[in-house]
């Protein structure tokens, strides 16, 4: 399949970036509409998968990332003398899944569902960059809320949060008013003042 210039450019950008690149950034760099970018990137990703290339392009939410093929993992670890990232422990997996479904979720909510203390699990997930802070809840104590990151999507082979397996989410008590993210906090604080 002949590659267009935009596909070659996307290929080069994703390789140089290493990390996930948002569609808006690709659109700005290539001076194309986001729809065209998505079409070109998806075609390129399918091309790589069809030819079973050593590198793949993953679509992660509204961005793309170039990664090595999972089939070649053993060769990669041997050549680079590195190891695959360790498995998540059961408690970390539970905490991560709760945050993924109930995000933005506080540590207290994770502990309420699990029934045990989850401080270590939450901090471990933060260190692994599978979750990130997502503002604070507008209740006494102003606890930190957490949400999943694009690395979470990549690690679990998801294109977006909509691809999570459907479950029946349980509502715990009355809905709590959520506070806007940190950038907007001063404005809301001034309004309350």
């Amino acid at each position: 399949m002949e590659r267009t210039e935009s596909q070659r450019a996307i290929e080069a950008i994703l390789f140089a970036a290493g990390e996930r690149v948002e569609v808006s950034r690709l659109s700005m760099a290539l001076e194309l509409d986001e729809v065209e970018i998505i079409a070109a990137a998806d075609a390129l990703a399918d091309d790589y998968a069809f030819e079973r290339r050593g590198v793949r392009i993953l679509r992660l939410d509204k961005g793309y990332q170039m990664v090595s093929s999972g089939e070649m993992a053993d060769f990669v670890t041997k050549a680079l003398e590195t190891r695959k990232p360790p498995k998540l422990s059961a408690s970390q997996l539970e905490a991560l899944t709760i945050i993924a479904y109930y995000q933005p979720a506080t540590k207290a909510m994770v502990e309420q569902i699990r029934g045990v203390d989850s401080s270590y699990s939450v901090s471990a997930l933060m260190n692994k960059k599978l979750i990130e802070e997502a503002g604070r809840l507008n209740v006494p104590g102003r606890p930190i809320q957490y949400r999943t990151t694009p690395d979470f999507l990549r690690t679990f082979g998801l294109g977006s949060l909509e691809e999570l397996p459907p479950i029946e989410k349980i509502s715990f008590g009355e809905p709590i008013v959520e506070e806007p993210v940190a950038a907007q906090e001063p404005a809301s604080a001034q309004e309350e003042g």
């Binding site: 090595s68 997996l93 569902i113 999570l164 479950i167």
Partner: peptide, 26 residues
């Protein structure tokens, strides 16, 4: 009940994590 649902989701996500761990980035 909530924890039961979470365990169901973990059952689906854990094998996917095994594949995800094999993807390397630069």
């Amino acid at each position: 009940e909530a924890m039961e649902q979470i365990r169901v989701a973990i059952g689906v996500l854990e094998p996917r994590n095994e594949i995800g761990r094999c993807l390397f980035t630069k």
